[in-house]
Design a protein around this nucleic acid. Structure first.
Length: 214
DNA sequence: ATCCCGAGGG
DNA sequence: CCCTCTGGAT
């Protein structure tokens, strides 16, 4: 099956079965989304959503978080992974926002990636979700699912996968597609013991086909 | 034991 | 390319 056809089938399937797909992180503005996405690394959205309301009521914007006491901030986020790194990143990120961007979250990839703790994946999420710009953030789910269902072929790294996906997904569907792949990866196409019996994509899934040989 | 919407540094 | 950070859920 040619690539274009494969993408069409996948998009058709999700359009029917998951017409609405949004981030499961709660947020109110670009800054709170930025904080939530930084906290979400190696941590479930459920836990992040328990932390951010408390954290953001204490530090509602870059100005207040830039002046946060690192020990106090650490205590508030210690139940998620890498609390030490994340506490440092949140404070340094806020300081950079104040120093270089007038306290506002930038709306372009280059400037977003200048923020401590913000890499390409996080920057793409902010662009796509907070600013509704065409971008494809590739996280562990998007990377795994895309490879399994053949949207990408031997992607070497997340950026490679991003380029392969951008080639065939229409701009206006990028954000939707991003969340389709994440939610599918989270609940059906899980890393271990994927629920292929519940998956409507198995008819043309190369991963499922291979699993039958075992 | 293995994985969760990674980033920074060597 | 590799490693480290590092808590909670399953």
């Amino acid at each position: 099956m040619i690539k274009k056809e494969r993408f069409r089938k996948v998009i058709d399937y999700f359009t029917t079965h998951m017409p609405v797909a949004e981030t499961e992180l709660t947020y109110e503005n670009p800054f709170s989304l930025l904080v939530a996405v930084i906290l979400s690394a190696q941590c479930t959205d459920r836990r992040v959503n328990m932390i951010t309301p408390v954290l953001l009521s204490r530090y509602p914007d870059a100005a207040s978080m830039a002046e946060a006491n690192s020990g106090e901030l650490f205590e508030m986020i210690k139940s998620c992974s890498y609390p030490n790194n994340k506490a440092k990143h949140l404070i340094a990120m806020s300081r950079t926002l104040i120093d270089k961007f007038d306290g506002a979250v930038p709306d372009n990839l280059e400037d977003l990636q200048k923020l401590p703790g913000v890499g390409r994946k996080t920057a793409n999420v902010i662009l796509s979700v907070a600013f509704h710009k065409p971008a494809m953030a590739v996280d562990t789910h998007v990377f795994r699912v895309s490879e399994r269902i053949g949207l990408t072929t031997r992607a070497k790294n997340p950026y490679d996968a991003e380029l392969q996906l951008l080639k065939y997904i229409p701009e206006e569907k990028l954000s939707l597609a991003h969340h389709w792949l994440i939610l599918h990866g989270r609940y059906i196409c899980t890393a271990r013991n994927p629920k292929c019996s519940e998956c409507g994509l198995r008819a043309f899934c190369t991963y499922y086909e291979k699993s039958l040989d075992k």
